[in-house]
């Protein structure tokens, strides 16, 4: 499996990563190698095998009581935000 520059551009767009022109071919080569390395998986006989999403078999989701346990901590949390105004997180204009 070989990934082209365009493939890398597409993936980088989905992942919202800026990749420079110079880096594109470098990533194309290393990603191609990595994906090529995955091809050995196809040799495994997995017919009828359930995919394993979790190492904890037979464990099920615990449920929480419907209680409000949190209070307003906005100012503390927004201390980490790059840009806020009037309690809102600011971003370049969203166009719907």
């Amino acid at each position: 499996m070989t990934l082209t520059r365009r493939d890398v551009e597409g993936i980088a767009m989905l992942a919202r990563l800026e990749i420079s022109e110079a880096e594109l071919p470098v990533y194309a080569i290393s990603l191609s190698r990595i994906v090529g390395f995955f091809d050995q998986l196809s040799a495994a006989a997995t017919e009828g095998v359930e995919p394993m999403a979790h190492p904890l078999e037979n464990q099920v989701q615990a449920l929480r009581d419907d209680q409000i346990t949190e209070s307003d901590q906005r100012d503390r949390y927004q201390g980490n935000a790059p840009l806020v105004a009037a309690g809102l997180y600011l971003v370049p204009k969203v166009i719907e």
Binding site: I11, A15, V35, V49, P51, M52
Partner: peptide, 23 residues
Amino acid sequence: IMTGTYVLSAGYYDAYYLKAQKV
């Protein structure tokens, strides 16, 4: 991130992600 995005993306999910979870 790009590897992961790729193996989950449409058309590759079954061949990579799902296959890997089966293995």
